[in-house]
């Protein structure tokens, strides 16, 4: 037990610090999405996300950075990045591309915070809440509000589950 706790403490110690993640996220947000005001951090509304985008970091440090948003928040973000008016039609592909690029930028900068060398994956965008691996532990959670929409940025540390045996078994 004690060893396991120490392992967890070591995991947290080697992981990015919330203040650094917050700063770089605000930089990414402010640079491309500043027109709808700043990203307010520290407002955890416990919302139900419709979309999640994630990138994983593998190497000396292992983890995954995720961005969770509502559909209307993701649409707003996409329109803002693409410079589209509210009247213009959006397809899911646009939305997936835009939130994927946002998490790519945040994830790449998070990777810069940890001891390397590490590799960044391509972004993975899915409907619904972000599902982390069973061996991964949340080390950063930023509950945010932007353009009156809730969103969350999380960092989970640890390797993703080696095998997928549990899920298919449950499914059976």
């Amino acid at each position: 037990m004690i060893l396991a706790m120490n392992g967890e403490q070591a995991l947290v110690a080697a992981s990015p610090k919330p203040t650094d993640v917050r700063k770089l996220t605000q930089e990414v947000w402010g640079t491309f999405l500043g027109e709808h005001g700043p990203l307010e951090v520290g407002t955890d509304l416990g919302f139900a996300p419709d979309w999640s985008a994630s990138v994983s970091v593998k190497g000396e440090w292992n983890g995954v950075v995720a961005l969770e948003m509502t559909t209307s928040g993701a649409q707003r973000l996409t329109r803002s990045m693409l410079g589209l008016e509210t009247s213009e039609e959006l397809v899911d592909g646009d939305l997936v591309d835009a939130i994927g690029e946002m998490v790519n930028m945040i994830g790449g900068n998070v990777k810069g915070l940890v001891r390397g060398p590490c590799r960044l994956s391509l972004p993975l965008v899915a409907a619904g809440r972000f599902a982390h691996g069973s061996g991964q532990r949340e080390v950063v959670r930023l509950g945010c509000t932007w353009a009156a929409e809730p969103l969350a940025i999380t960092v989970h540390a640890g390797r993703p589950a080696k095998s997928l045996t549990t899920r298919p078994l449950e499914a059976r």
Binding site: N104, M105, G107, G108, N109, K111, G112, G116, P117, L120
Partner: peptide, 8 residues
């Protein structure tokens, strides 16, 4: 033009 931001 990339998010890769490590010195190395």
């Amino acid at each position: 033009v990339t998010t890769e931001s490590e010195h190395a």
